[in-house]
Design a protein around this nucleic acid. Structure first.
Length: 498
RNA sequence: GCUCCGGUAGUAUAGUCCGGUCAAGUAUAGCGGCCUCUCGAGCCGCGGACCCGGGUUCGAAUCCCGGCCGGAGCACCA
């Protein structure tokens, strides 16, 4: 049984009236398993302490990481699917004037400056722990330059607002970091606010301002942001703000899956993947389509916890969590992969078989099939999997599950002949007969199963599957769990796992 | 190269702050058995780990130093 794994306590909870966390994606791509750690940790901690969970879209780069309108919604949907609904939502592109206000405050206080140096020149200076000339200009001149950033006097790339830090800081990356830059609004309009703004905040600025303004008490994000915390702390010092608690967890990977946005986007653009929900991807859309439950993801993430070391999860791990949730609830059906015809002779009577929908929960009901022996030979025909017959030879005894036992008499490539030997299960056991599943010919529906590697398994599902609803997760016995995707004249399902 | 993190069984995690109860717990995977009209589930059992080397100490997975390995950051990205 699965232990009820608890998250370790959050630091300094008592310091704050209420715990507030946030998940802040850039809506430039769909979400994938790599984001699960941020989302679930933030949500779970907020709820653990009866706090607040905020969704904040960080869409302040209309040029390099251009947001896409549809992803705002898919992210909201993914969060809803994960049952991590935010209490509040903010969009940074709506808050640009606010950032300007704080930028001006810093400028006026001499805590920031507008730098018009060539990037290479600035780099050289900062590496040598030297200040550039712009740094010393008085506030009124800085304000003038600031106006020029806003009014278009400076072109894209000509000026940047920098936050003053310690030029002696051992890490050159934190020295006088850039906070706002110019992006040509005509060339790079923002999908939400169009060409309204030409000065856009960089991550450390907008994130730092918002974390304070929204009252975030605990920042939970990937450790790639460790130096960003160091940078932002200088700004907090300038404003006299107190920096929130910060937890930087390690990267989460899963063996064999690409969890990088750029690779996913590239694969889709090149047609390698069929869409955001291609089964080979570890996007939430793909996991959802494959029948991975949000609860399984949640349990796995909570088990992994907020450690700062990287983790490489295996699919088996995720499957194990999922299987535990699915096994008690999934109804059982037969699917014959790669069907081969099997005829059985000498069937003594009409068989009416009731197959339980769940082996341990017969109250869930049954599927019923009638096997009527026909003609002089008292013959009936079935579909069985090629794989099951490949292992048998003439003379071998097999049991058709919940039906009767047969003996193989003739093996042809597309048709196997056999005859009835006995009815009881006990005899099958005594003979150590393999149990195989079957579908009476005439009681089938064509069925296609999309496998995790995007290949197809084709065959027949039993006719009872016609009543299934898309989205339900069932188990095809001896085959694996699948999620029903479409039901029409043909059944389409996605393979979940064994 | 520089600046930071981190290294417990195949995988993940507990323990590391505040040394002994840890010859190291748990889950999953593996193996064996039982059970079951699924190759699913369940039950029982088995094997499997503290990166290396020094030091401190009566005693170190836990503290100190050195090394090795892994990761992250070093963008007018987030």
């Amino acid at each position: 049984m699965e232990e009820k794994k608890q998250l370790p306590p959050l630091p300094n909870v008592k310091k704050y009236p209420q715990v507030v966390t946030r998940f802040s994606p850039n809506p430039d791509c769909v979400l994938h398993l790599g984001s699960a750690r941020a989302i679930i940790l933030c949500y779970e901690y907020a709820h653990m302490y009866k706090g607040k969970f905020i969704l904040r879209f960080e869409d302040t780069d209309p040029k390099l990481k251009r947001p896409v309108l549809e992803f705002y919604d898919t992210i909201r949907e993914d969060l809803a699917w994960l049952e991590c609904k935010p209490d509040e939502e903010y969009i940074q592109s709506d808050r640009i004037p606010l950032y300007y206000e704080y930028a001006e405050r810093l400028l006026k206080a001499g805590k920031a400056y507008i730098c018009t140096c060539l990037p290479e020149l600035f780099r050289k200076k900062i590496l040598a722990k030297q200040s550039c000339d712009c740094r010393h200009l008085p506030p009124n001149e800085q304000m003038e330059r600031w106006q020029h950033m806003l009014d278009g006097y400076y072109n894209e790339g000509a000026a940047v607002l920098r936050i003053k830090t310690d030029l002696d800081h051992p890490n050159p990356a934190v020295r006088d970091w850039p906070a706002l830059r110019i992006i040509n609004p005509e060339k790079y309009p923002h999908p939400r606010v169009g060409s309204k703004y030409r000065v856009w905040p960089l991550y450390n600025f907008s994130c730092g301002i918002d974390d304070h303004l929204l009252g975030i008490t605990h920042i939970i994000r990937g450790k790639e942001h460790l130096t960003n915390m160091v940078r932002q702390k200088y700004m907090y010092l300038h404003f006299g703000w107190q920096y929130p608690e910060a937890i930087h967890y390690g990267r989460l990977k899963i063996t064999g899956a690409y969890l990088s946005k750029s690779k996913i986007v590239k694969g889709i653009r090149e047609g390698l993947y069929k869409g955001w929900d291609d089964p080979r991807l570890a996007t939430f859309a793909a996991l959802r389509r494959r029948g991975i439950t949000p609860e399984a993801i949640k349990k796995m993430i909570i088990a992994v916890g907020p450690k700062s070391s990287d983790v490489v999860l295996s699919w088996e791990n995720l499957y194990a969590y999922n299987r535990k949730l699915l096994d008690p609830t999934a109804d059982r059906y037969f699917f014959v992969d790669n069907p081969v015809q099997l005829t059985v002779k000498q069937i003594p009577k009409v068989y009416v078989t009731k197959l339980p929908l769940h082996p341990e929960k017969t109250q869930r009901g049954f599927r019923e099939y009638i096997v009527t022996p026909d003609g002089y030979e008292k013959l009936a025909a079935f579909w069985v999997s090629k794989k099951d017959l490949e292992l048998s030879k003439v003379g071998k005894i097999l049991r058709l599950m919940e039906l009767f036992n047969i003996k193989i008499e003739k093996l042809n490539p597309f048709c196997v002949e056999s005859s009835f030997v006995s009815e009881s299960y006990k005899e099958a056991k005594k003979a150590k007969a393999p149990l195989i599943h079957w579908i009476p010919i005439g009681n089938e529906i064509p069925c296609q199963i999309v496998m995790p590697d995007a290949t197809l398994a084709e065959g027949f599902a039993e006719s009872a599957c016609k009543k299934l609803k898309p989205n339900s997760i069932i188990q095809f016995e001896r085959f694996g769990f699948v999620r029903i995707d479409q039901v029409n004249s043909k059944l389409t399902a996605y393979f979940t796992h064994k």
